[in-house]
Computed example of a mutant assay.
Amino acid sequence: MLSCRTAPFATMLRLRRLSSAPHPSSPMQPDDVDVLTNPSEKYVDAFMKAYGNERTVFKKEDFALWQNSFDDYQFKLTCLKGTTTVVATSHFVTFKPLDESKESLVFMGFGWMDKHFRNPAALKIQQDICHEVVPDPKTNMVGHINLEAARFWHMMCGLEYHPTAIHNAADVGYRSFYDVSDMKMDGSGGEIIDSSGITIRNARDVPKRDIIEYDQRIHPYHREKYIISHMLDRDGFAKVAYSDKDGKVCGIGQSIIYENKMDCNIGPLYADEPRVAQTIFSHMLNDIQQSGKKVSRFEVRSAQMAPNSFRWIAPFLKCKPTRSYVCNFVYKHWAPEDIDLSKVYCPTHLQLFMV
């Protein structure tokens, strides 16, 4: 995952015929490729076959979701000239803050390059794409960068590269995988949770404004269309928690089963306190069990700066919680402010969002 800049960009870079296309190991030039913006289904299908179907926590329909949710969303697909042979991908969206006195920022993510084309010349092409999309060097860019993409990120931002360090990192991201055999799928984990004073409702049965307003308490940037569509995903089991004391929303959660690998991704899971997050998940887990849908494993994201995001799931496990490093959340000029990480138990979708 990565980060970059804002401004329309020529939909395609012209190039040579396939017969003169470069050998994968040879330096790639701009005239060797087509760069498409929000490409047609033919190219999307080629990407899915080359890489998309193997990607966790992703499905083809996500492209339409992202494009319909954000007017300036751009998915960049680089292919060999005149073909559907996919070389690399990235995408960009501008996030506008709820507080209009604050600056917008550009999120870059979905960064991938076919291993056969990974060389400095090909990276330079991707860097040029970023500079086309975000031409103003003063624009703040953010994203989630793993160690493999660190060199690219430093090139992009004009920072000195060190193999063992990532500059301008605001957070560290982790990923946990739990097989179904590791989970208390019978719901027994929820029996030890204090759920008193909490009412759980299906996301489809509550006012959309309730979901949007709670989301904006944690993520202070506009994404109203997205969060509603995501919470109503047909493959999901979204819940909203209300406090019996004052009737206000005290948490939201979604768990979606992705059919390509039958993984279940939890996110978002936002809550006022751990027992609310656990109560929401207990209800989602029960619905998953009752649905009869197959799940191979659960994917859970967590972050160093989100203090409750790692061990909250412990009551539902037959093993101890574990996690491994996956990325750093990075910024070009300044780290986003006012994100309430104390309420983040699982982020929403790190391919497009900060949390």
Score class of each variant (00 low, 15 high):
His219Thr: 11
Ile288Glu: 00
Thr56Gly: 10
Phe63Asp: 06
Ile212Ser: 09
Ile129Asn: 09
Ala169Gln: 09
Leu36Glu: 10
His167Cys: 14
Lys76Asp: 09
Ile211Leu: 08
Asn68Glu: 14
Tyr258His: 03
Gly190Phe: 05
His116Cys: 13
Pro39Arg: 12
Asp136Leu: 04
Lys115Phe: 14
Leu317Arg: 05
Lys332Asp: 05
Met183Leu: 04
Thr139Lys: 10
Ala241Tyr: 00
Gln216Gly: 07
Val57Phe: 08
Leu350Ile: 13
His131Gln: 08
Pro39Phe: 07
Asp235Ala: 05
Ala46Gln: 03
Ser229Met: 11
Tyr226Ser: 10
Asp287His: 03
Met305Ala: 12
Leu232Gly: 07
Leu341Asn: 15
His116Thr: 11
Asp34Asn: 15
Thr199Arg: 07
Phe95His: 06
Lys49Asp: 15
Lys261His: 08
Ala149Ser: 13
Tyr43Glu: 13
Met183Trp: 01
Asp272Gln: 11
Arg118Gly: 08
Thr78Arg: 05
Ala238Ile: 01
Met1Phe: 09
Ser291Met: 02
Arg118Ser: 11
Leu36Ser: 10
Met185Tyr: 00
Phe329Ser: 04
Val93His: 07
Ile252Ala: 03
Ser309Phe: 03
Asn168Thr: 05
Ile266Cys: 02
Met284Ser: 04
Gly292His: 02
Asn146Ile: 09
Met1Leu: 13
Thr164Ala: 12
Ser69Pro: 04
Ile145Met: 08
Gly292Arg: 00
Tyr174Leu: 06
Pro137Ile: 03
Gly187Arg: 02
Arg275Ser: 11
Tyr226Leu: 08
Leu341Asp: 11
Phe237Lys: 01
Ile339Arg: 01
Phe298Leu: 01
Asn308His: 12
His219Ala: 08
Asp72Leu: 14
Glu41Met: 15
Glu41Lys: 15
Lys115Gln: 15
Trp66Arg: 10
Asp340Ser: 06
Gly173His: 07
Leu285Ile: 00
Lys138Gly: 10
Thr85His: 12
His91Gly: 11
Asn265Met: 13
Lys293Val: 02
Arg301Leu: 14
Ala169Arg: 06
Gly189Glu: 01
Ala306His: 07
Met1Gln: 12
His131Phe: 13
Arg301Gln: 14
Tyr43Asp: 09
Arg209Thr: 12
Leu269Tyr: 04
Ile339Lys: 00
Met185Gln: 02
Val300Ser: 04
Lys115Arg: 15
Pro207Ser: 07
Gly52Asp: 03
Gln126Pro: 09
Tyr214Ile: 00
His23Ser: 14
His144Val: 10
Ser40Leu: 15
Asp215Ala: 09
Arg297Tyr: 00
Ala314Gln: 07
Pro336Lys: 01
Ala88Phe: 06
Tyr325Glu: 09
Glu213Pro: 11
Arg17Val: 11
Leu98Ala: 02
His283Pro: 08
Lys138Glu: 10
Pro336Val: 00
Glu259Phe: 06
Met354Trp: 07
Met108Lys: 12
Leu2Glu: 13
Tyr242Glu: 02
Phe47Val: 05
Ala335Thr: 06
Asn308Pro: 10
Asp136Gln: 04
Val326Ser: 12
Cys346Asp: 04
Lys293Thr: 05
Gly253Met: 02
Leu15His: 14
Lys261Phe: 06
Tyr73Cys: 05
Lys293His: 07
Met305Leu: 12
Asp128Met: 13
Ile198Ala: 04
Pro336Cys: 00
Tyr325Asn: 06
Val86Pro: 06
Asn260Val: 00
Lys138Ala: 11
Arg151Leu: 15
